[in-house]
Design a protein around this nucleic acid. Sequence first.
DNA 1: CCTACCGATCGGTAGG
DNA 2: CCTACCGATCGGTAGG
Lengths: 195, 195
Amino acid sequence: MAKNQRKKASKKGLILKKAAIMFREKGFAATSMRDLAEAVGIEAASLYNHIRSKNEILEAICFDMANVYNTTIESVEASKQNSIQKIEQLLRFHIAQMTENYEDVYVADREWKHLDEPYLSNFKTQRSNYRKKFAAIIEDGIHKNEIKKIDAPTAVLILLHAVSGIESWHRSKAKISAKELEDNMVMIMIDGLRK
Amino acid sequence: MAKNQRKKASKKGLILKKAAIMFREKGFAATSMRDLAEAVGIEAASLYNHIRSKNEILEAICFDMANVYNTTIESVEASKQNSIQKIEQLLRFHIAQMTENYEDVYVADREWKHLDEPYLSNFKTQRSNYRKKFAAIIEDGIHKNEIKKIDAPTAVLILLHAVSGIESWHRSKAKISAKELEDNMVMIMIDGLRK
DNA sequence: CCTACCGATCGGTAGG
DNA sequence: CCTACCGATCGGTAGG
């Protein structure tokens, strides 16, 4: 992963990486800069040679994820596949992110509330736009009779939240492999949508 | 709702209710006792005539929800229905909780990490037991050929997280009604499981 | 990258 | 239920 390499290469990258781990474990508000500094191996004051503020760390994590999501859905939109295939591709993308890039995904998904303005509004807009694009793909599938007649925005919420359920799987050191997990999820969700 | 009545009847009930709203909005750690006191309409120090600590409030919310969950799944287990019917009943229960008792459900689901020991361990155990009971129902349906061959613990995670997606629906003042929402969700999830 | 420190705010208590 | 206050900890800065 290019991103993971970057995150380990520089000190700022290390700070972002450790921060994501701690923000997931304890939450943004309950993680102190002194906790973070200890995990990085420096004094709290020294963090500020690499980052401007605690909130800037959260911004970096959230908007890096938003960019990955935007890039992906734009490429899926542009591809020549039917709607079921597009949805399956998006599901597999989200599952892969969850298993490979767990900490960042979790933080961007659950801790974005702690963003300050104007970043908060910006993030909420991007999030809403992503869901609208996803819903449009489902809507298209309904019109083309590939997908059962359901409320598309509701289906998007179900799909995205279902994927976030992998979080617990990740923690539980389950016996099932990542591949099996992915296939199980895709089967359940796709069969649920299909006519 | 008996519980809502109790929560409005006494001052302690009002504190728990306002706390659930604020813990959901800002998170447990980012909600101060002074914020909470203002919402209740008293001084921060006066809160301590009704509760022992900030953590006690979180405990009350989380364990009230755990009790509701336990009671429900025990009654579903004891009922004479096939596995698909049991799962549908549990799904409708969770959806109803999400639409009727949103704040408490959300806090018990997302903020329990901030519980102190021994409550934290207790809560995690109850949560794990609930999921095991749910998985056993799915497992039973697989053996009886009512449900496709999938990994039952994974299916439980998908179902429970999918339901939590209603959170965003709740916030978005969607055009779809609660009844339609419920039917859409049940249809997608049940069809996804069925053989 | 560290020592030394700031003002603000936190959860909670004493005493009435 | 309030005023007055406590020690601890917070994010962040000055200066080297």
